[in-house]
Computed example of a mutant assay.
Amino acid sequence: MNVTSSTVDTITLIEATGSIDSKTAPDFERTALTAIQGQSEVIIDLTNVDFLSSAGLRVLLMIYRQVKAKNGKVVLVGTSEEIQDIMANTGFLAFFSLAETLDEGLTILKTA
């Protein structure tokens, strides 16, 4: 798994590639939590994530809580049907806005 963070139009973008499971979740957590410090608008691009375990869900929830504490919003981009199903079944989908593309995610945050 690979995780990168950058800024697009003052919005923090976290991009993950590969599987987010018990082995890779700590790296995802470390990179993501460092990137979102002080941020209230975050996009997490999951377009290239093929698997998300409960450990990955836990990290997403941590990100959500930290951003929400600043009255912010988190948008998930490119979430596969399988991952959306997992998130729907666990109730996690209600915490996030979903977008198909990065541009759509940016639009959601700019109009929020």
Rank of each mutant, 00 (worst) to 15 (best):
M1L: 06
M1W: 00
M1N: 07
N2S: 08
V3R: 02
T4D: 00
T4A: 02
S5P: 01
S5N: 10
S6A: 10
T7F: 06
T7V: 14
V8P: 00
T12V: 15
T12I: 13
L13V: 09
I14Y: 09
T17G: 02
G18K: 07
S19Q: 11
I20R: 00
S22V: 09
S22H: 13
K23V: 11
T24Q: 05
T24S: 15
A25V: 01
A25T: 05
A25Q: 02
P26T: 03
P26E: 05
D27W: 00
F28G: 13
E29T: 01
R30I: 02
A32K: 02
A32E: 06
L33H: 03
L33R: 01
T34H: 13
T34A: 14
A35H: 13
A35D: 12
G38E: 07
G38N: 05
G38A: 08
Q39G: 02
S40P: 01
S40F: 00
S40R: 09
S40K: 11
S40C: 05
S40I: 00
E41F: 01
I43Y: 12
I44P: 07
D45G: 11
D45S: 12
D45H: 13
L46M: 14
T47R: 10
N48M: 06
D50F: 07
F51L: 13
S53N: 10
S53W: 00
A55E: 11
A55Q: 09
L57W: 06
R58Y: 02
R58K: 12
V59K: 04
V59A: 14
L60F: 15
L61E: 14
L61V: 15
M62E: 15
M62I: 04
Y64P: 06
Q66V: 03
Q66Y: 02
K70D: 11
N71M: 04
K73F: 00
V74Q: 07
V74H: 07
V74S: 09
V75Y: 13
V75W: 13
V77A: 07
T79K: 11
T79P: 10
S80C: 11
E81V: 05
E82A: 10
E82Y: 07
E82K: 08
E82W: 02
I83G: 08
I83A: 08
Q84D: 03
Q84F: 00
I86N: 05
M87L: 15
M87E: 12
A88Q: 12
A88M: 08
N89H: 06
T90F: 10
T90N: 11
G91W: 10
F92K: 08
F92W: 09
L93S: 15
L93W: 02
L93G: 14
A94E: 15
A94S: 14
F95N: 15
F95I: 03
F95V: 04
S97K: 12
S97G: 00
S97E: 10
L98F: 12
T101E: 03
T101C: 04
L102W: 02
L102V: 04
G105Q: 04
L106C: 04
I108T: 12
I108E: 03
L109V: 03
L109A: 01
K110H: 09
K110N: 13
A112F: 09
A112S: 13
A112D: 05
